[in-house]
């Protein structure tokens, strides 16, 4: 199976129908294991106490917020360069999911920040760039809604999405480039993770659960978007036939009138 096979929406829908139940099953199982580990296996942090458990939902949410936008950027390239029929379907379907995960990253970060930093929010580079990401998601969602024809909207929104992708390295390296209250990377580091294994393992299991959840929701949302476009094309066909039929009736009526 290649990317070109997936260009056929009917083939893609068949694939989704087959894969989705397995994805949902795996997601439920991994989430259950991850939540068990987060609350019953992971110890309290020696400094953060129980608030470290917020990290098990905060970090995966933040990763997925970035991953989702990265995927939308790749989809935008696919839409602009190869005109892949499902590329802009993928980009459009991912936006609300990415916005939700970005909101969750911001919210869970705030409720962790209050007891640990003594404040809900600071305008440091990491937090601000994540807020910018959230606003970009909302802008992209709003822009999709302003166009009637998705084919006309796709290239414009793809360009905007790609411009917005410049924010991704800023988010990732903000903690290195600027002096931020947000701590630097502690998992993906050149010298290995700086987190204790007892906390790292539940974190990675929860990240896997969130990723499975994202993939399942994204595939479902893509299926909905394909249905939406099919309905639109059916309505356009009806509308295109309607004036012709009306014109036929007018000509017919004129013919009848002329005959009298």
């Amino acid at each position: 199976m290649t990317l070109y096979d997936l260009a056929n929406p009917t083939f893609f829908l068949k694939l989704v129908r087959r894969v989705l139940p397995w994805l949902i099953g795996a997601c439920v199982l991994v989430s259950a294991i991850g939540l068990y580990m987060a609350f019953f296996s992971a110890p309290e942090d020696y400094q953060q106490g129980n608030t470290v458990r917020i990290m098990f939902v905060h970090v995966p949410s933040a990763w997925l917020a970035l991953f989702c936008y990265g995927m939308m950027s790749v989809s935008s390239i696919g839409s602009l360069v190869w005109k892949h029929p499902l590329a802009d379907v993928s980009a459009k379907a991912a936006a609300p999911i990415g916005a939700t995960f970005t909101f969750l990253a911001l919210f869970t970060g705030a409720v962790w920040g209050k007891p640990m930093w003594g404040t809900w929010w600071v305008w440091d580079a990491r937090l601000t760039s994540m807020l910018v990401l959230f606003i970009m998601y909302l802008g992209i969602i709003a822009l999709w809604k302003t166009f009637d024809d998705p084919a006309k909207a796709a290239p414009k929104i793809a360009v905007l999405t790609l411009v917005g992708s410049l924010n991704l390295p800023i988010i990732k390296f903000s903690v290195d480039w600027w002096n931020t209250l947000h701590q630097p990377a502690s998992v993906f580091r050149t010298d290995g993770p700086s987190i204790a294994t007892s906390i790292l393992v539940p974190l990675l299991v929860m990240a896997l659960a969130f990723t499975l959840l994202f993939v399942a929701m994204h595939l479902s949302a893509m299926r909905n978007e394909i249905f939406r476009r099919r309905i639109r094309s059916m309505r356009v066909r009806v509308a295109a036939k309607a004036p012709a039929a009306a014109a036929g009736r007018v000509v017919g009526a004129a013919g009848v009138a002329g005959g009298n």
Binding site: N50, T51, I54, V57, F103, T108, V111
Partner: peptide, 18 residues
């Protein structure tokens, strides 16, 4: 959940709702 349990609970409840 310790003395900051309300924050932990709020985080998980909002994630579940969203």
């Amino acid at each position: 959940l310790g003395r900051h349990g309300g924050y932990v609970l709020a985080a998980y409840v909002v994630v579940a709702f969203a």
